[in-house]
C-alpha cells in the first residue's frame, strides 16, 4: 500500500464550498464531526472487510471526532437486513450512510427516510439502480471499462474464437448486471466477433451453487472455452470445479478475483488471467466522499472536485451507466496473471 502524503494544506482552499468550480478541488477540512455508517452487502466476506480497513484509515486520517460504524446484515438476511440497518441509521440521525447495495430499488424508501433525517446517502461497490434517494455512487472502476477488460480477457484466452459463459452472483446484484451489460456492449465490436456469449447463470455468491453451475455450463456447452465470473466467490468456485474434474485444459476461468485466493489456480493454469481493483482504496475513497458531503464541504453537484487524501483528486460526474445518478469514479484496476500474481498475493 502507498503511504498517505501531502495533507497539511487543507485550510488554504476552503473558500469555494458549495458551488464547487471544477478547477479548484476541495481540500478536506479535518476534525469536523460526522457520525458515519459503513454498510456492506453482508458480513463475513473478505473484500468488504478490506473496504472497512480503508474507511478506518481515512477516518483516523481526517480526525473525525464522530463514530464510524461498520455494520451489516448476516448473509441469509442480506436484503431485509440492509433495509433495517438503513432505517435504524435514519432514526439515529447519522450524518452519512455508505451502502454497498444488495437490495436493488427495494432500499429506496429506507434510504429516502435516511436522507429526510438529514443523512447523506453514498453508495459504493453497488449503487441504487434507479439512482433515487442516493447522493452519489463511488464506483470502483468505470463499468464500461470493466466490460471491455472482461471482453478483452476472454478474447485473449480464446485466441479470438470460441464460446464464453458468464457465472455471476445474484440475478439482482446491480453492479454485476451493469458489468455484464457493459461487456455485452463491448462484444459488439468488430474485434470480438469470434467470441460468442452463450449463457449467463447465477451462483448467488455461494461456493456450492457456483461450483454446480460451473459444471452445468460445461455439460450444457461442450465447446465452451471460458467461464467469466465477475465475482470473487464465483471465479474461485469455478476454478476449483474445473480443477476437480480435470477440465482446466478445455475450459479456462477468468473474471474478477482476489489474488490471494486465486494464486494456486493461476499457477496451475486453471485461471490464467483475471482482474480486480483495491477494495481498501474503495473504502478509503468512499469515506472521503461521504465525510466531505456530511460536513458540508461539498454538496454532491456534478463537476465538483475534491482531493481524497493519498489517492489524489476526484470529480463528481453524471453516472453514464445509469439513467439517473452521479458518481465518483475510482479506477483503474489491475489485470493479474502468472507474472504479477505472486507479488500481489503476498501483499
Amino acid at each position: 500500500m502507498k503511504i498517505a502524503s501531502k495533507l497539511c494544506v487543507s485550510v488554504l482552499l476552503s473558500a469555494g464550498l458549495a458551488t464547487g468550480a471544477a478547477a479548484d478541488a476541495v481540500m478536506a477540512k479535518k476534525g469536523m464531526e460526522a457520525d458515519m455508517v459503513l454498510l456492506p452487502k453482508f458480513l463475513g466476506i473478505l473484500v468488504f472487510d478490506q473496504a472497512n480497513t480503508g474507511a478506518q484509515e481515512a477516518h483516523a486520517e481526517l480526525e473525525n471526532p464522530g463514530e464510524l460504524l461498520f455494520v451489516g446484515p448476516t448473509p441469509e438476511n442480506s436484503v431485509a437486513g440492509q433495509i433495517e440497518i438503513v432505517t435504524t441509521a435514519a432514526t439515529q440521525s447519522r450524518d452519512a450512510v455508505m451502502i454497498s447495495n444488495n437490495s436493488g430499488d427495494q432500499i429506496v424508501p429506507a434510504a429516502q427516510a435516511a436522507k429526510d433525517a438529514g443523512a447523506k446517502v453514498v453508495t459504493w461497490d453497488s449503487p441504487i439502480p434507479s439512482g433515487e434517494a442516493e447522493d452519489v455512487f463511488v464506483a470502483q472502476v468505470d463499468f464500461a471499462s470493466i466490460g471491455e477488460v472482461m471482453a478483452e480477457m476472454a478474447h485473449s484466452i480464446l485466441d479470438g474464437e470460441g464460446q464464453m459463459a458468464v457465472l455471476s452472483a445474484t440475478p439482482d446484484a446491480a453492479n454485476q448486471n451493469a458489468w455484464i451489460a457493459a461487456m455485452q456492449t463491448a462484444l459488439e465490436a468488430e474485434k470480438y466477433a469470434g467470441v460468442e456469449l452463450v449463457d449467463i447463470v447465477y451462483g448467488d455468491d455461494q461456493s456450492e451453487k457456483s461450483y454446480d453451475r460451473a459444471l452445468a455450463l460445461v455439460d450444457k456447452y461442450p465447446d465452451l472455452g471460458v467461464i467469466m465470473a465477475p465475482t470473487t466467490v464465483g471465479i474461485q468456485a469455478a476454478a476449483k470445479a474445473m480443477q476437480d474434474e480435470g477440465l482446466c485444459d478445455e475450459v479456462a476461468v477468468s473474471g474478477l478475483g482476489l489474488p490471494s485466493e486465486m494464486l494456486s489456480y493461476t499457477l496451475n493454469g486453471c485461471a490464467e488471467e483475471f482482474a480486480l481493483w483495491s477494495f481498501v482504496d474503495l473504502g478509503y475513497l468512499t469515506y472521503y466522499t461521504a465525510y466531505l458531503m456530511a460536513t458540508g464541504q461539498i454538496s454532491g453537484e456534478i463537476g465538483e472536485s475534491f482531493v481524497a487524501g493519498r489517492m489524489g483528486e476526484y470529480t463528481i460526474e453524471k453516472d453514464p451507466t445509469r439513467e439517473n445518478g452521479n458518481r465518483v469514479l475510482m479506477g483503474p484496476f489491475t489485470v493479474y496473471n502468472m507474472d504479477n500474481i505472486e507479488a500481489a498475493a503476498a501483499e
Partner: peptide, 16 residues
C-alpha cells in the same frame, strides 16, 4: 465433505 469439495469457505457456506 463440503470443505473438501468446495475448498473456498465463506460465511454463506451451506445457506439454504
Amino acid at each position: 465433505m463440503f470443505l473438501s469439495r468446495f475448498g473456498n469457505i465463506t460465511v454463506v457456506a451451506g445457506l439454504g
